[in-house]
Structure formats: structure tokens, C-alpha cells
Design a protein around this nucleic acid. Structure first.
Lengths: 115, 115
DNA sequence: GTGCATAATTCCTTTAGCGTCATAGAGTTC
DNA sequence: GAACTCTATGACGCTAAAGGAATTATGCAC
């Protein structure tokens, strides 16, 4: 049986893999694409371009990265490619972080001296 | 009552804030520092420098970023500064991502044709 | 086949951030 | 006070990645 995770230091490979994953979410464009897909369901590239306002090449590249990471899936519909969310993890992570932000702000609010 | 989150598109400010948070975790150095603090409890800067092998200025800067984000706290002990984890969220996030990695690998393993 | 659409890829420039060296600040000891 | 240790900050080069324009690939209609 393996030692408890809390007592073992993560390997450099794991650190690297984790940081690469978080790096995917560290770019507003990619996060925006994921949110759009969450909001609008499956969408083709043209719609995502219009929704985000970025160039076609940029969107295509970012979608490629998300797809290689398995966060997004893609299927053809005639001449168009329809992308869709492929993993609910992103939303979970965002909700956790957002909850933390709310918590911190409430804390700061309480520590602010009343008038 | 506010609309369900799934139906509203996150504001650009929220997207930006989320991406900035994830950016903190997208750097191996910072993730390594957080893991070290998780593993070894509160540590002074010198120990963190030795544990990571980076230069003093680099470590100091990364610790500063983590502290401003509230992920790490810091108190003086004489001439030394002792840093400690200030938020369990990072570990939660890492565990979630790690679980997803395991899941994906198991999936790939099953799809691999047997000999 | 040609022509027309959509999307991926190849270049390119520019920018953000890592990482180090040198310096300045803060705290202790004498 | 001076001398010393520990940490933060300024200045700088360097590399990775964003972002766009142009090109190429892919699929459909004809």
C-alpha cells in the first residue's frame, strides 16, 4: 500500500503535469471558450469566434489545446466542426475558486470598521 | 433571487479573476513551494530555497505572489520569515485534477487492445 | 474535376513573466 | 552606533506563449 499522499512530496513530473493543466485555465481566452460552451452547449467554431471576438486562427489554436487536454470534444457536421465540453471538472474548479473569492471578500468586508 | 449560474455567462471580470488565480498554480515553482509547505508545515525562506534549489530572489518573489493571493501566510521569527499554507483550496484543486488524470489514464488503458 | 465554405496550420511580431545578479531594506547582536 | 544575517526589490536578459495575417487543408455542392 502506498504511503498517504500528504506525507509524500509530489514528484517533479506530477508537479509539471498539474501546472500544465492549470496553465490551460490561466488564459482568459480559453476560460471564455469553456464558459461559452457551458452556456450555449455544443457550438461550431464560427459561433465561438463571434462570441469571443478573437481571430479565427487564435480560436482554433486555443480549441486545439483544450481538445488535446480532453476538456473539449469535437465532431464534424458537414463542413463545420462542433465543439462541446467534455469534462465537468472545469466547472467544479471554477466554482471552488469562485466560492473562495466570495469568502475572502466577505471576510474583508467584516474586517472593515463600520461607520 | 439570482439566476442559476449555469444560465448566465460569467462577466469578463470574473473570467479575468479566475484566470489570474489559475495562473498562480500554472508555475511549477509556485506549486512546488505550496507542496513543500504542505509537506513540511511552516518553513522559513532559507529552507524553501534549499528544498527547491532556486535563487533567493526568485523564491522571495514567488512567495510574495502567493501571499498577496492569500494562499500563504507569513510571520516573523526574529530575523527570519516563516511561511505557511493559508488555504486548503490548493490541495483540493490538485486532488481533483490528479483524480481526473488517473481516470483518463485508466480509460486509455482499457481502450488499449489486449495482447 | 472547379468553386465555395469552414477550420487548421504556418509564419510573424509583440508581450508577459521567469529567473538571476546586484542592491536596498529590515532585524538582531555586539 | 557598526557589523552581520535574512529577505525584499530593481534592473536586466531570455524564453514561452499570445494574438493576428496569410496560407493551406478539408469537406460539400455543382
Amino acid at each position: 500500500m502506498a504511503a498517504p499522499a500528504a506525507l509524500t512530496l509530489p514528484s517533479p513530473q506530477l508537479i509539471e503535469a498539474l501546472s500544465q493543466f492549470f496553465r490551460l485555465l490561466s488564459e482568459p481566452t480559453r476560460l471564455q471558450l469553456l464558459c461559452q460552451l457551458k452556456h450555449g452547449g455544443a457550438m461550431d467554431v464560427a459561433s465561438l469566434i463571434e462570441a469571443t471576438g478573437f481571430s479565427q486562427s487564435h480560436i482554433s489554436r486555443q480549441l486545439g489545446q483544450l481538445q488535446r487536454a480532453g476538456l473539449v470534444s469535437c465532431e464534424r457536421d458537414g463542413v463545420r466542426l462542433i465543439y462541446a465540453l467534455a469534462d465537468p471538472l472545469v466547472e467544479e474548479l471554477c466554482n471552488l475558486v469562485q466560492g473562495r473569492m466570495r469568502q475572502r471578500l466577505e471576510q474583508q468586508l467584516q474586517q472593515l470598521p463600520a461607520l
